[in-house]
Amino acid sequence: MDQTLIAQAVSAVSTIVTGVFGCVAWFWLSNLALDAVLPPRGPKIGRNLARAAAIRPWLFLGPALIALAVYLVYPIFVSIWLSFHDSRGETFVGLSNYRWLLADGKFHESLRNNALWLVFVPTLATLFGLVAAALTDRIRWGNVAKSLIFMPMAVSFVGAAVVWKFVYDYRGEGQAEIGLLSALVTSFGGTARAWLTVPGWNSFLLMLVLIWIQTGFAMVILSAALRGIAEETIEAATIDGATPVQIFFRIKVPQIWGTIAVVWTTITITVLKVFDIVLTMTNGQWGTQVMANLMFDWMFRANDTGRASTVALVIMALVTPIMVWNIRNANREMHG
C-alpha cells in the first residue's frame, strides 16, 4: 500500500514537472526561434522588426487560442451536430431528439425545477448576502464573521452535500434523531420525515445548500460595493433625519444596483449548471431532477449522446442571454 502511494507520488511529481516545463519551453523557444529567423539587427532590421511584431502576438496567444478553440468552441458545434443524430452519433435523425425532449416528462420536471432554482437561489442568496454585508460592515468582528459566512465557498458541492445530508438525516420512528432538521422538528412537537423524499419540499432543501454556498460570494462583492458609496450621500441623509434602515434601502441599495445585477447573474449561471448537489443528494429522484443532472444521466447511464447533447444545448441556450449581456458590458468598458 505504502509503496504504491510512493510510486504514485513520484510519477505525479514527474508528470507535473514535465507538464509545466513543456509550457515554459514553448514560449521561450518559440520566441528564440522568431528572433533567430527575423533578427532585430542587420541590414533588414526595419522589415524584420515589423514582421516579428506582427507574428509575436500570435506566439503569445497561440496555446491559449488553441485550447479555447478545442475545449470550448469546437464542442459547441459538435454538440449541435450530435443533437441531430441517434444515441451513438451515427445516423441522422433530424429533429427527433428535440421532439423527444419536448414530450419527455423528466425534462418537464427538470425545466420546472430549474425555473424554481432560478427564482429562489439567486434571489435569496443575493438577499442574504446583502443582509450579511450590511450587518458585518457595522460590527467590530466583521472580518471574522465574513470569513465564516464566506467559508462554504471553499467547500466542494459534494462536500456540501455530505454536510447537508447529515442535517437532513432521518432515523425513523422510535429512534433518536441525529439530523438537525429532524431533531428541531421533533423538539417542537412535529413529526420528522425522510425529508429528501418528500416531493415539493425536497427541491427547496437542495436549493438551501446552494444558497448556503453562494451567500458568502454575494456578501463579499456587495460589501465592497457598499463601502464604495460616497459618504456625502449618507451624511446628507443622516442630517435630514433618515433612520439607518431608511438609509440602507433608500440611499445605499439604489446606488449598488449594478453590482447586485452582476451578483445575480453570476449566481444564475451557477444555478443553470448545478449538478453535483442533485447528483449526490437525491440523484434526481423524488421529483428533484434538474437539467444538468438529466444531461449527465443520458450521457452516462443511457449512453445516448444525441439526447444528452440536446439537453446540453438547452442549457447553453438558457445561458446565452447572459453571455450577450456580458459581452456588451465588456465592450462598453473597453470603449467607454
Binding site: W58, L68, V73, P75, A308, A312, I315, V319, I327, A330
Partner: peptide, 28 residues
C-alpha cells in the same frame, strides 16, 4: 500588443466565460 482583431478576441473570450461545461463533455 497591437494587432488586428484584438477587440474581437476579447469579446469572444468574455462570451466563452459562460459556456456550460456540460456542452463540452461529450465532444471532448
Amino acid at each position: 500588443m497591437r494587432f488586428p482583431g484584438r477587440a474581437l478576441l476579447v469579446a469572444v473570450i468574455v462570451g466563452l466565460l459562460v459556456v456550460p461545461l456540460q456542452l463540452a463533455l461529450i465532444p471532448l
